[in-house]
Structures are given as structure tokens and as C-alpha cells.
């Protein structure tokens, strides 16, 4: 997957988790949790969806790497 595809995937997932928000306005370096008011339950759902769609292992210790869209793209394209 390209970084652009990963970014689009992340935005799709975030839209379904927080339908009241507009993730497309997110800047790449912004903390997703702050910008979209995502709590730990939402974030877990985000990780679950990323894992199910990409089948990439995401250990809990790596969660902080997924706090921004840039981070998600970097992590999943490795």
C-alpha cells in the first residue's frame, strides 16, 4: 500500500468511528486523539480496524506511533 492509500484507509476508519467529525481536515502531524476527541476505546477500535484491513501486527507498545496520520502512514508502509 502506498502512503496515500494508507492515509485514505485511516481517514475512512476514523470517519466510521467518529462520524460527527471531519477527519479529512486533519493535518499529517496533528494528534488524531486531540483533533477528533478520540478516547482510548475509540483508539482501540481504530487499531483493530487497521489490523483487520492490513493484517499488519500492531503491538500495544507501538500505539504511540499511530497518534498522527504521518505516523500511521510511516508505520504501516514499513
Amino acid at each position: 500500500m502506498t502512503k496515500a492509500e494508507i492515509r485514505q484507509l485511516a481517514l475512512d476508519i476514523l470517519s466510521s468511528i467518529a462520524p460527527e467529525t471531519d477527519p479529512s481536515a486533519l493535518a499529517g502531524h496533528e494528534d488524531i486523539r486531540e483533533a477528533l476527541d478520540i478516547d482510548s476505546m475509540d483508539f482501540l477500535n481504530f487499531v483493530i480496524a487497521l489490523h483487520q484491513r492490513t493484517e499488519i501486527e500492531i503491538p500495544e507498545a507501538d500505539y504511540p506511533k499511530l497518534f498522527t496520520l504521518n505516523g500511521v502512514a510511516a508505520y504501516l508502509s514499513q
Partner: peptide, 17 residues
């Protein structure tokens, strides 16, 4: 919790809650 979650896929992991 860390030990428990390490062995599991995200959808089986627990939150401190």
C-alpha cells in the same frame, strides 16, 4: 495487562477500564 495484550490481536486486547 501488558503481558496479556502482547499475546493477543488488537480485538482481543483489554483496556484498563
Amino acid at each position: 495487562l501488558e503481558t496479556f495484550n502482547t499475546e493477543r490481536l488488537p480485538d482481543q486486547r483489554l483496556l484498563p477500564a
